[in-house]
Design a protein around this nucleic acid. Structure first.
Length: 491
DNA sequence: ATGTGC
């Protein structure tokens, strides 16, 4: 990799910077950023990775990095890369690295008809949540599933979870893709199955969390009202994904695809498909090839497991809220978004219709209110875009366009974005001090290890408010309301 | 992100 992209960098002055196509790039790259933001994030590897993705076969439009971009596996986190599914004989590329290891990592956002004053005892509530929400690397505490149950979940996602007794009928329309992506065979490896049988309803570790929050500042009153949100209201975010099952699906397909590439003077080449990639971690298959279809089918099954996982976590949260708040504890799902996914969608590229495989890796869909996939309750506002920040600072809910799409294939940022690597954060930040500071501010924190607190400390992340401002400036989504943390359960 | 390595 090289840093020559700096010679091709242009500030567009609209909250984005462009890297003009050079070398093997087929399209320009575009970062949601400005010079100040770029300077504060000295790691060149993210833009380098974005440049690499711009040479993927079939790529259309521009290779995008959302405002929370940072270094990832092959593709940067925050990457939005679309390929034409009708290019050539077998279609454009689909790449497991463009989705990431935590397939359908995402956020469920719930709202209560209550305020902080309705909580009899926050400390007790937080303690009970910590007791009921299995978190951390151990993977203990998941629902014991039969092989048959797991298969239903892989095929049916949140709707299958509902059939097993997790969730409410009224949840389903509020989930991206109604909580179910199409899979023919749910053909995931035996190893992936074994990892799925015990992990349903567990949070995981790293940046995954469950957070009880209050609505702080409402900046778009009309939209907030349409969504039933108001200042001081209690809300909750559940951030989790497909756990070990999705990780295994990604590992299986990354390994088998990477093994079809050999090193050449230009990079990494697959002779059968005539693909040459700058980085082996971009390993990709044509979308209509056997390998491409096998990946997409397994990826969708893993995505369904993630939708089901968030449904079970929501059920566990609801149980605690009912116990602690009584009738005030009813929580409705406002929305549930996927952060790590590849989807076949219709978009306009250079004024022409194009059916694309849109990779969103650490990026959220942000469709307009008139899109047929968006529930009719959002027709006058655009879809909710849930953007968790970090545990000390706060989180946002944004909205997609009222009508139509945006210039990044209907996408927006997914969080604050790391500013420090986990290793740097562990070295520089002290978890115990952080916990004390947060609790002095009235925020209850339960974490499975002190390390996770330093790795996930506010200072390890970019400023979420800056990320939201850039996203708005780039015209990708508009801020609706900012949430303040109240109780945090971390893996 | 991850039964934190192949």
């Amino acid at each position: 990799m090289d840093a020559s992209w700096r010679d091709h960098l242009v500030d567009e002055g609209d909250g984005t910077m462009r890297i003009k196509a050079h070398g093997a790039m087929r399209v320009d790259a575009r970062l949601v950023t400005d010079m100040g933001h770029m300077m504060r994030h000295g790691d060149d590897r993210g833009p380098e990775q974005l440049v690499n993705t711009a040479s993927l076969p079939g790529i259309v439009g521009e290779a995008w990095a959302m405002a929370d971009w940072h270094y990832g596996y092959g593709f940067p986190i925050g990457g939005v890369v679309a390929t034409d599914v009708n290019e050539g004989e077998l279609g454009g590329a689909v790449s497991p690295g463009g989705v990431g290891f935590d397939i359908n990592c995402g956020v469920r956002f719930l709202a209560l008809d209550a305020t902080k004053d309705d909580i009899p005892n926050l400390k007790k509530l937080a303690g009970r949540l910590a007791g009921r929400i299995p978190a951390g690397g151990s993977g203990k505490g998941g629902v014991d599933l039969s092989r048959q149950d797991l298969n239903e979940l892989l095929m049916g996602g949140a709707s299958a979870a509902l059939d097993l007794g997790f969730g409410l009928d009224s949840d389903l329309p509020m989930l991206e893709s109604k909580g179910c992506l199409p899979t023919q065979e749910a053909n995931v490896s035996q190893r992936a199955v074994e990892r799925g049988l015990k992990s349903l309803g567990t949070l995981g570790s790293g940046n995954h969390f469950l957070e009880l929050q209050t609505v702080g500042q409402v900046v778009d009153e009309r939209t907030a009202t349409a969504w039933g949100l108001h200042e001081h209201q209690l809300v909750a975010m559940i951030h989790s994904g497909s756990r070990g099952l999705g990780h295994q699906v990604c590992t299986d397909h990354v390994r088998s695809l990477e093994s079809t590439y050999r090193q050449t003077d230009q990079g990494w080449t697959n002779d059968a498909w005539g693909y040459t990639l700058a980085d082996r971690q971009l390993a990709a298959a044509p979308i209509h090839s056997r390998e491409g279809q096998a990946y997409l089918d397994a990826m969708n099954a893993a995505a369904n497991f993630a939708f089901a996982n968030r449904a079970v976590l929501a059920e566990r949260l609801r149980t605690v809220l009912r116990l602690e708040l009584g009738v005030d504890g009813e929580a409705r799902t406002l929305y549930d978004v996927a952060h790590n996914i590849a989807k076949v969608e219709d978009h306009h590229v250079n004024g022409k219709g194009c059916t694309c495989c849109v990779h969103r890796k650490g990026a959220t869909r942000a469709f307009g209110g008139d899109h047929p996939e968006v529930a009719s309750v959002f027709s006058t506002t655009g879809q909710p875009v849930v953007v968790p920040g970090d545990m000390g600072t706060g989180s946002w809910v944004m909205a997609g366009p009222i009508n139509g799409s945006n210039q990044a294939f209907g996408s927006s940022c997914h969080g604050a974005g790391r500013a420090l690597s986990r290793a740097q954060a562990k070295k520089l930040l002290d978890g115990k001090t952080l916990k004390r500071d947060l609790e002095n501010r009235g925020i209850r924190v339960h974490a499975s290890t002190p390390n996770v607190l330093s790795e996930e400390a506010p200072d390890a992340y970019k400023n979420v408010d800056d990320v939201i401002k850039l996203t708005q400036r780039a015209g990708l989504a508009r801020p609706v309301a900012r949430m303040n943390p109240l109780a945090v359960i971390k893996g």
